[in-house]
């Protein structure tokens, strides 16, 4: 099982490939990764990346790499993650610095939520967000998510729930 290709107005979401790794490595080398168990070296970044991609054959869902359709440029990764310890599948996102502030993660997330609803019939999907990660919280709320009192990946996580029932 690998990712299907999803398209939106500006974006193509597809199965990750090795050429995407340098973007994830650079993210994990930077302070931008402080909310995602970073910063860390390239070796651990590879472990993270490969384990995320490995969700596809293990779980039937996982990360999509996000390309700008017009240019083919890699913009980030949006997908569904459920490593051991996550109470439910989680909606997660990452964009490269150049893609910030353009609504890329929101546009890709909507496509992933529609796909998840259609494929799995889920009623909802949650984000697990560190309370200090204000940008992610703002995005989750902008997407229509509601903060709920439920366990996340870490005891301190905020859990923001998206109702999928109106989709597809």
């Amino acid at each position: 099982m690998i990712a299907p290709t999803l398209t939106t107005a500006r974006l193509t979401l597809r199965m990750p490939q090795m050429a995407d790794f340098p973007h994830r490595r650079d993210f994990y080398a930077s302070d931008r990764s402080i909310w995602e168990d970073g910063p860390c070296d390239a070796l651990l970044a590879w472990r993270y990346f490969a384990s995320e991609v490995g969700q596809w054959p293990l779980m039937g869902f996982g990360p999509f790499s996000v390309d700008e359709t017009a240019t083919g440029a890699y913009l980030g990764e949006v997908g569904i993650y459920q490593p051991v310890g996550y109470p439910e599948p989680e909606l997660g996102w990452f964009v490269v610095p150049a893609a910030e502030g353009r609504g890329i993660a929101a546009e890709a997330s909507r496509a992933v939520m529609i796909w998840a609803r259609k494929t799995f019939g889920w009623d909802h999907i949650d984000n697990y967000v560190d309370p200090g990660n204000t940008r992610s919280i703002a995005l989750a709320l902008r997407l229509g998510g509601k903060t709920i009192n439920a366990p996340g990946a870490d005891p301190t996580d905020m859990v923001i729930r998206h109702d999928l029932r109106a989709l597809a």
Partner: peptide, 19 residues
């Protein structure tokens, strides 16, 4: 710990897919 073991296990699968 279990979550680290799971990460390594998942990375075995990801390695097959990527490489």
């Amino acid at each position: 710990e279990e979550h680290e073991a799971a990460e390594q296990f998942a990375s075995f699968f990801g390695h097959w897919v990527l490489r």
